[in-house]
Design a binder for these strands. Sequence first.
DNA 1: GTGAAAGCGCTAACAC
DNA 2: GTGTTAGCGCTTTCAC
Lengths: 347, 347
Amino acid sequence: MSATIKDVAREAGVSQATAARALAGYGYASERARKRVLAAAERLGYRPHAVARALVSGSTRTLGLVVGDIENPFFALAARGMADAAGEKDYTLLLANSDEDLEEERLAVEALLARRVDGLAVAPTSPESLAHLSPVAADGTPLVVLDRPLRGLRVDTVTADNAGGAAAAVRHLIALGHRCIGVVSDSPEIGSTAERLRGYRSALREAGLTVNPHLVSVGGPSADEGYRTARALLERPDRPTALFTANNFMTLGTVRALRDLGLRAPGDVALIGFDDTDWTTIVDPPLTVVAQPVYEIGRTAGERLLARCAGDAGAARRIRLETRLIVRASCGEQTTRSDLANLGGAS
Amino acid sequence: MSATIKDVAREAGVSQATAARALAGYGYASERARKRVLAAAERLGYRPHAVARALVSGSTRTLGLVVGDIENPFFALAARGMADAAGEKDYTLLLANSDEDLEEERLAVEALLARRVDGLAVAPTSPESLAHLSPVAADGTPLVVLDRPLRGLRVDTVTADNAGGAAAAVRHLIALGHRCIGVVSDSPEIGSTAERLRGYRSALREAGLTVNPHLVSVGGPSADEGYRTARALLERPDRPTALFTANNFMTLGTVRALRDLGLRAPGDVALIGFDDTDWTTIVDPPLTVVAQPVYEIGRTAGERLLARCAGDAGAARRIRLETRLIVRASCGEQTTRSDLANLGGAS
DNA sequence: GTGAAAGCGCTAACAC
DNA sequence: GTGTTAGCGCTTTCAC
């Protein structure tokens, strides 16, 4: 087994306390003692025992992250952002997948808490996550809610402007003349999805259009489910002329459904998706999307957690990061105001 | 702060030892004592302190994973596999990114080891990883080398059949009549890449073709670098008639380069990629690829680690998972033996 | 079946 | 500056 600080002390001919001070670099130690200790540590291949240190210091220098599925490029990138923030302060990431299952999430939170993470970020599966998350917040473990708003919890929350982004997408479609706009979505239990659906509805209403519930097709949180959900919509007799897909998995499934149905965007249906995944520019046509700052969401969550760990006791922050509409080709020609003006002038 | 086992013992009116036994479920405890303890724990909201437990038990029930970049869908999926294997045995994953940098990797390994992970999986950045990895193996911490062979280390290794997969890809191209086949690759420092390059060369040689070093274009490990690398190849006066891309990032970059250059597959160049990422079927044309069992690689690595943690002291296993050639449209018509036979009969 | 007590490896008073 | 010492919360003998 590896050498302990006691071994190092003996080898260096000093007390354990001196060895500890020299190694961890706190308190006083003479230059001479420091050198001897460091040399001894080197010789013995001493490696600090973070577990023992954590037990006494009360800090594991570890951040927990519970996501739906690390396989989802959204979460992978957010995790990357959080890991980067953590790494800069010598923290590491303890990761768990909830599979969008409430009980799995509860178990994951439990497991990370038992391991005494210094802070915990969770992308809550549903509003009911509140039940196991509020005790965490109450216990004083820094907690940040990631990606999905959760009502009733006063903790730092980092999300994208989901409603705004979705509304922008739908407005774009409306501006292009669409009146029959469908949504391919996963469950509104998922907070971000609920917000996107809300954005969709409000954009329709604000244009004086009625919201047709048949056009909102809801399925599970995977590309396969997105495929099924999209087909349900596309095979309706009154097929929508445009589709808004609520996240990258839905978009992927929808693109596959279009292909299998022999439908083309924007000719047969216009398509606009939430999330700018890396493949959106290489499909034909390139996809018009609402992009959210995924890496930043993860990084900001990490930074909030780290700030809380460092003692920040300020009021809970609700951080909403901007989304951006990226117009490419999947909705057809963009009709800008000046285009309209030109058209007017020409006719 | 949260209640300790001592508090629970006091509350239940038993000794600490009895409380511990009842809670952890080992050793003896009367039904009556167990009930009292469990009730007390419930009342106090007791949560086991995994750190303290780890200190005495010597096990953190945590597996470490060091990958190049969790944002890479390959690693995200492998991580998922490993997390699933871990989760089944109540283990969690401590994650770190190396960014394909040797020193970062060393630091990451150090950080995870300091936190006393029970086992460690690493996708080594380069052959030089040996320097910091062999002491780990020697120290007795279960170690598995993931995705990339590493010479000189006798530990469990889980990889895909990279050479075989690459050779199959190149053979496919040769069978279609290609004689000038380029490769878009990241650095051969990366073990899996080196093997794929080897497979490429051996397939050429076995067909009696010479290996033209100008056709092997090497860049960094990102889609942007893949783009740059691919363009370098595609803008040559003697542009290859076919391209083999060594991994998903290279494929993505290459597809973008083709698009920007106004080149079409398979008409202008045939394209075959390593990795079957989720978007390979929705680009035009759907991509012919070598698929590797990514999830399985991660899961198997996790299982090996868990087995080692459980005491398996058998010889180091070198597990090579099969790849599969998936023929789609990006290399043009597939000429099968029966096609050739038919052609022969017709002429 | 239960309790007392030792100790995992470290940090942090506190005395010298 | 350096050493002694008391824990951190838990598991685990070993008596009883």
